[in-house]
Simulated assay, not measured.
Amino acid sequence: MTKNNGESPQKTEVKVSLIGGHRLAGATLHERTVTASLIGGADIDLTDVDIPDSARLRITKLSLIGGVTLRVRRDVRVEVRGLRLGGVKDDGPSEPGGPTVRIDAWGLVGGVSVHRS
């Protein structure tokens, strides 16, 4: 994960594809990531990443068809926003006071599924 030291603006990584989703691992994510596709979801794994407690990652998913699968540690708070037909499934509460990952999911079909380990 690329960290912001407060002196420079946050980097935004953009991934675009027409058909097919994106697989993102924590070491390759910036503090802001945008993934866009006509058809295809995003599979994001942050379980092996040491995210500082004050960190706020923001991931934006844009697609007509395709959802988001997010894997995080138990101490990570997850905020889900956006408009999609599919809803949100989170398999457990997070512990208070941890880092925050915000998912902005915009699309017609596809939900957001959060798995904690």
Rank of each mutant, 00 (worst) to 15 (best):
residue 52 P to Q: 13
residue 111 G to W: 01
residue 61 K to N: 13
residue 113 S to P: 00
residue 17 S to V: 03
residue 64 L to W: 14
residue 43 D to I: 03
residue 34 V to Q: 06
residue 40 G to T: 05
residue 104 D to H: 13
residue 101 V to Y: 02
residue 32 R to E: 05
residue 91 D to N: 15
residue 74 R to V: 04
residue 35 T to R: 08
residue 37 S to T: 15
residue 26 G to D: 08
residue 86 G to I: 00
residue 77 R to V: 04
residue 36 A to N: 08
residue 108 L to N: 10
residue 22 H to D: 10
residue 58 R to T: 10
residue 67 G to C: 02
residue 73 R to N: 15
residue 16 V to K: 01
residue 12 T to L: 06
residue 11 K to C: 07
residue 92 G to W: 05
residue 102 R to Q: 10
residue 95 E to W: 03
residue 101 V to I: 08
residue 86 G to H: 02
residue 94 S to F: 03
residue 29 L to Y: 00
residue 106 W to D: 08
residue 24 L to Q: 09
residue 50 D to H: 15
residue 81 R to F: 04
residue 88 V to F: 00
residue 112 V to T: 12
residue 23 R to M: 12
residue 112 V to L: 05
residue 62 L to I: 09
residue 76 V to D: 03
residue 21 G to A: 03
residue 10 Q to L: 09
residue 13 E to H: 08
residue 24 L to D: 05
residue 81 R to M: 12
residue 92 G to Q: 13
residue 38 L to K: 06
residue 111 G to R: 07
residue 63 S to T: 09
residue 43 D to H: 15
residue 87 G to R: 07
residue 24 L to H: 02
residue 27 A to T: 04
residue 72 V to K: 00
residue 77 R to T: 15
residue 83 L to Q: 13
residue 63 S to Q: 07
residue 65 I to M: 15
residue 26 G to H: 08
residue 57 L to R: 06
residue 112 V to E: 01
residue 74 R to H: 13
residue 34 V to L: 11
residue 49 V to E: 12
residue 44 I to E: 00
residue 21 G to H: 07
residue 87 G to W: 03
residue 11 K to P: 09
residue 97 G to Y: 07
residue 83 L to I: 14
residue 65 I to L: 14
residue 51 I to C: 12
residue 82 G to W: 06
residue 96 P to D: 11
residue 13 E to W: 02
residue 96 P to T: 11
residue 68 V to N: 06
residue 4 N to R: 12
residue 44 I to R: 15
residue 23 R to G: 07
residue 100 T to H: 08
residue 69 T to I: 07
residue 3 K to G: 11
residue 50 D to M: 10
residue 8 S to C: 02
residue 35 T to Q: 05
residue 64 L to I: 13
residue 15 K to G: 02
residue 26 G to R: 07
residue 29 L to R: 01
residue 65 I to C: 11
residue 100 T to S: 10
residue 45 D to R: 10
residue 35 T to K: 09
residue 114 V to F: 06
residue 16 V to C: 00
residue 105 A to E: 02
residue 90 D to E: 11
residue 91 D to H: 05
residue 45 D to G: 09
residue 49 V to N: 07
residue 15 K to T: 00
residue 112 V to P: 01
residue 9 P to N: 09
residue 52 P to F: 10
residue 10 Q to D: 12
residue 19 I to K: 10
residue 46 L to P: 07
residue 100 T to K: 10
residue 56 R to K: 11
residue 81 R to Q: 13
residue 94 S to L: 01
residue 99 P to E: 04
residue 28 T to H: 11
residue 45 D to C: 05
residue 83 L to H: 10
residue 10 Q to P: 03
residue 103 I to H: 11
residue 40 G to I: 06
residue 10 Q to R: 07
residue 105 A to S: 15
residue 107 G to S: 08
